[in-house]
Amino acid sequence: MSDFFNQIATMFSYSFMVRAMFIGGLVALCASLLGVILVLKRYSMIGDGLSHVSFGAMAVGLAFNQAPLYVAIPVVIVAAYLLLRVSENSKIKGDAAIGLIASSSIAIGIIINTLSKGTNIDLNSYMFGSILAINKEDSVLCIILGIVILVVFIYCYHYIFAITFDENFAKACGIKIEIHKTILAILTALTVVIGMRIMGTLLISSLIIFPAVTSMRIFKRFKPVLISSVAISMFSYFVGMIASYMLEIPTGASIVVCNMCVFIFATVIAKILKK
């Protein structure tokens, strides 16, 4: 047992581990809050789509020797805005629009990466994430963005609830729902860009979907769903991180598997409670 704690102590003695823990925890928190809204609004796959866009944008950024985060953030915000807002009115429906944008971004990203011989980025780390991905300079930006996401979400909480529950009623009351939907798009975009470095393009959407769906298995009121979703997300993140360190398995995958176990556990509990 003491061996276990020794190992954890060693784990926290690495500064990159502490950084990944902290930033990842913040991302897990933001993603779980936004996830509840996105899942209820039937936009679950938007995280997946945006992370693909982020991949493409970062590849382009690297090819032109720009800091990948600074290129990805505006591009992904625009993509989120298009997906959440414009696709509602257009002829291409939400899920198809996500599919189109996601695969196009990946394709462009890979072509540019291959053509720009100068760079030699590890595509694998982008696809499946890496805890080494966020360096010291980026981490300040990530922490600031994480806090901004939290503060804005809490400030707009009641508006976000009203719009998620019944958009038409909110509109009829004269609430400017366009502004709040744009805010939601921006927050989602920021969360995905920060999170995909650690979790990877292919796995970040689990951070958005799993905690929300899991907590909705057990709780039936909005505030408890939000709070438990955050708790589940943080728990899975930290357990996943520790497991990944101990067992030397990829971090993103380990976190997803933790989320999956909690989900199965919650489903069983919900079934028992119902009987």
Partner: peptide, 26 residues
Amino acid sequence: YLSQQNPMQKDFPASVGEVVLSGCLT
């Protein structure tokens, strides 16, 4: 405004109090 039944609300996790209070938003 009381709109036509919205199928999305059928499984929406919200308490009665939360829904009613959202009418006070403005």
